[in-house]
Simulated scan of single mutants.
Amino acid sequence: MKVFLETERLILRQFTEKDAENLFELDSDPDVLRFTTNLGQPTPYIVIQTQILPEYFAYYEKYDGYGCWAAIEKSSKAFIGWFLFRPIIHASYFNPKLANSTDVEIGYRLRKASWGKGYATEGVKALIFKGLSELGTKRILACAFAVNTASIRVMEKAGLKLKERLFSEEIAQEAVLYELNKS
């Protein structure tokens, strides 16, 4: 398995087939999924094996430096979640009126036991730095439900600014779109 980047407390590495159980556990916690498009519904194990992991593996083949990365806590070596740094064209909410096809989406999902420890901010800042300094990223976007104040704080701590408020008819939720321009 390939390590993508390390921070003081985290290792972000490529996913492997062996991570199916980790993803299943993460996506089985209704509190973790409360602010996702799953709206608290667990992801079936078969979907993780046949759709999600193959999608992550395809990013590694297609892109040099973009994808979804397993987050490992250095001190315990435990899987704590994932971080996403990929071309926004792969985002379910991609809309050419809101984003350019060259923009990059950033996001994360962490186990509840890892909340409130600064891991989200640490990982997001490291990905932003790598994207802007090494990968040629020009603009980074992040989306969250408007009620997800913890994720909004992470985006703001990482330097992203509110771009737009949106309402999703599909899930009957208000969302916010944040951005960070290289300039």
Rank of each mutant, 00 (worst) to 15 (best):
G123W: 12
V124K: 03
T137D: 06
S28F: 09
N95K: 07
Y60Q: 09
D64A: 12
N181Q: 11
I171C: 08
F15Q: 06
T102G: 09
N95I: 04
S151C: 09
T137I: 10
E61K: 14
L135W: 10
L23C: 04
E179M: 12
A146N: 10
P44D: 11
R165F: 00
L23H: 01
R139M: 06
Q41M: 12
R111H: 06
Y45H: 07
P87Q: 12
A142D: 00
K138A: 13
E8G: 13
F57E: 11
E156T: 11
F24W: 13
L177C: 09
K2T: 09
L141F: 05
A175S: 13
V32T: 05
N148W: 00
A144V: 02
A71P: 00
D103V: 04
F57A: 13
E8I: 01
E6Y: 00
I152G: 00
L98I: 04
P54C: 01
R34N: 11
F15N: 05
P54M: 11
G136F: 05
A142R: 00
R139L: 02
C68I: 14
G107K: 02
I106W: 01
R111M: 12
S28D: 09
G118P: 07
Y56V: 00
D19R: 09
A99S: 15
H90G: 04
E122N: 12
A150E: 07
E179S: 14
G159Q: 08
I11V: 15
Q51I: 07
S133M: 04
V124D: 09
W82S: 10
E164K: 15
I46T: 09
L162H: 05
Y63F: 15
N181F: 10
M155F: 13
I152Q: 07
T36S: 15
N181H: 06
A99V: 03
A175R: 00
T121R: 02
T37H: 03
G131R: 06
F129R: 14
H90L: 10
S76G: 06
R13S: 03
I72W: 04
Y119P: 02
I52N: 09
L10A: 07
L160M: 08
P54K: 15
Y63A: 10
T37I: 14
P42V: 04
K77G: 05
L10G: 11
D19I: 06
E61A: 08
E179A: 14
I152L: 12
F57S: 10
I46H: 11
F85W: 01
P42A: 13
L39H: 04
W69T: 03
P87G: 13
K117S: 07
L33M: 11
G65E: 03
Q173R: 12
T149R: 08
S101H: 11
F94V: 06
Y56D: 04
K138S: 15
Q14L: 00
N95Q: 05
L177H: 00
F83P: 03
F57C: 07
Y60S: 13
I80W: 15
V176I: 15
A91F: 03
E25W: 09
L135S: 08
E179G: 14
M155N: 03
F94C: 08
F145R: 13
G136Y: 00
G67W: 06
A172M: 06
K117A: 03
